[in-house]
Design a protein around this nucleic acid. Structure first.
Lengths: 349, 349
DNA sequence: AGGTTTTATTGAATCGTTAAAAATCTAACA
DNA sequence: TGTTAGATTTTTAACGATTCAATAAAACCT
């Protein structure tokens, strides 16, 4: 197809002038400008992005690394990042790591080769080496909930504490005293942060309550397994909080299958407030993490570093807030009270 | 950072040799090769993808256009596309149109500028002009369910008929005779194809049944609205099929809110088999559309055209199959029989 | 040994743009 | 009328690879 040279010839000007018309980077007289514009039309000229990036050293691509787009936590986040990037004229290259650090490395390497303008590492599994490499290549980076901001590295810090504390206070106000927690895989930082927030809040209220922590995989199945461990453990807690909605939903499904009704027999609270939380039966009481905001801020942080290279990245705190729906209810009376879990009814799934 | 020249100097060879080592594109003696490899390490050389694309005219980027990543139909599709692309060394640029044709055009234009190796247009809102432009620029394209394959244009044709027919036969075998349909927005081709498949199957079985078609927006809310129209219509059908799971779920939620129980009072069937279909309460009976396959084939079709440019694209048929879960049950007796819808109980949402 | 192949490597053009420096043109001023 | 400052446009050199034609060296024949 036709290049800038063809356009220049057609318009009877130099390629520099065409470039300036296309990019609005210098004044060009009206007469010449319109001649160039006509030539662009005539040649159906589309600038070649690679040549452009090569010459200017700036690609207008953002790399987005997430763990698993099929996990309902991510789509809204991706959407927000994509929207914010689009508005600023950036394209987003999506990297789905599948929780595989090696794949993440591979992608980051490709990002560097593509000279991406910035990388949003919105995932937990990432390697020190990777980050060093990004730093060495002077690529702006924004993390989710990982360490402090650094040179050209911003951080989105989720305020887990507030939402989780609100959730626990809500449960306490409903009379719950035995609250278990289903955590995520402990090797993921976000899982650790959530668990920590839970423990802190619980410790404050019940300094000597049992720990009651189980672990899942952040997926539905993990929630199911954790719930069946809880069921097997004998004495049922009156409430269960899960580190994410998926596990909460899995737990509810397992409880139901065992004839334990939610919220009558046990209250369940989730975290994230994914789209389906409002639609499940019962609608899930949970903590809202504003994924849209998160995505928007991720891009903003990157843009910030782009306009101030050689500077410290920024630190943004993302608020969370508690949302009451239908999966929590007043605690059932204690085991020796009158109300007990009814006889188990197997519900076919 | 260091370029191929630095590596060449360091290794005492020409840039051509370095290039051949990096790309394995010609034989290089072991001695020279290892010298080059050592130099690459020493310089921490990462090839510049833009220079590469410019020189070779091939970008190893795939453009993926979808309507809305937040619609649970898409994540799995995106994941499959991304995975297949990754395996072949391609990066995926994600374009979320938000059902906006103009935004789609904008993106396609960018794709052309980036000289993408191919575009997967897995969405319904697309403009004739766009497609002409892609054809003119000789970009391989794969469509979802749009027209025939053409020069460098492949088509993934979903076999809606089979799955929908199975669904209807299932309903009929349960004694259902009045089956309504909640269609998608009629301006979307996929919505029309689904509706058509439904009408054909129904016509065949009940040549003179009432049409009973309502329209939604492919989202939960549209399902709710359609359900309330159905409720307002007086005589309730014994079964409702929706053009996608989201609307089926919305309809169930609306029915429940009105005290109409699913599947006792009305059976509901969805389409797509999104991840949450299995998890909803009741678990949704639906038609499975293998999104993973679809994504995989999309990339395969593109690769096919890449290795045979100047040829007709390929046509792939994607099968669908019916899945029974818990949202369908034998038809309740006709309105003048003994069993009637119980008194309406408002359920708080 | 002389000529012909084969093998391994290099030199230089090229891809399509940007951007810094140079050139040209215009109008104003003394 | 010559000089000059300012405005506009052109020239030219990167940017960092790939790739083809050319060359040098080694191997193979009679």
């Amino acid at each position: 197809m036709s290049s800038i040279k063809d356009v220049a010839r057609e318009a009877g000007v130099s390629t520099a002038t065409v470039s300036h018309v296309v990019n609005n980077t210098r004044f060009v007289s009206d007469e010449v400008r319109s001649r160039v514009e006509r030539a662009i039309e005539a040649c159906r000229y589309y600038p070649n992005a690679h040549a452009r990036s090569l010459a200017s050293g700036n690609s207008r691509i953002l790399g987005l690394v997430i763990s698993d787009i099929a996990n309902p936590f991510f789509p809204e986040l991706v959407k927000a990042v994509e929207t914010a990037a689009f508005e600023r004229g950036y394209d987003v290259v999506l990297s789905n790591t599948n929780y595989d650090a090696e794949r993440a490395s591979h992608y980051v390497r490709r990002f560097i080769e593509r000279k991406v303008a910035g990388v949003a590492l919105l995932t937990s599994e990432l390697d020190k080496k990777l980050i060093e490499e990004l730093a060495r290549r002077e690529v702006p980076v924004v993390f989710l909930d990982v360490g402090e901001a650094g040179l050209r590295m911003s951080n989105l810090r989720v305020d887990y504490e507030t939402g989780i504390e609100e959730a626990i206070l809500h449960l306490v106000s409903l009379g719950h005293r035995e609250i278990s927690f289903i955590g995520g895989p402990p090797h993921l930082r976000s899982a650790r942060r959530r668990l920590e927030a839970f423990r802190n809040a619980k410790q404050r209220l019940f300094p000597d309550a049992a720990d009651g922590v189980y672990f899942g995989d952040f997926k539905i199945e993990g929630g199911r397994r954790a719930a069946s461990e809880i069921l097997a453990g004998g004495k049922l807690p009156t409430a269960v909080m899960a580190a994410n909605d998926l596990m909460a939903l899995g737990a509810i499904s397992e409880f139901r299958a065992a004839g334990v009704q939610v919220p009558r027999d046990v209250s369940v609270v989730g975290f994230d407030d994914i789209a389906f939380a409002a639609l499940s039966e019962p609608a899930l009481t949970t903590v809202n993490l504003p994924l849209g905001e998160l995505g928007k801020y991720a891009v903003e942080a990157l843009m910030e570093t782009l306009s101030n290279p050689d500077q410290q990245g920024i630190e943004i705190t993302i608020p969370t807030h508690f949302i009451v729906r239908a999966s929590t209810a007043p605690a059932r009376l204690s085991p020796d009270g009158t109300k007990q879990a009814r006889k188990a009814v197997r519900v076919k799934s």
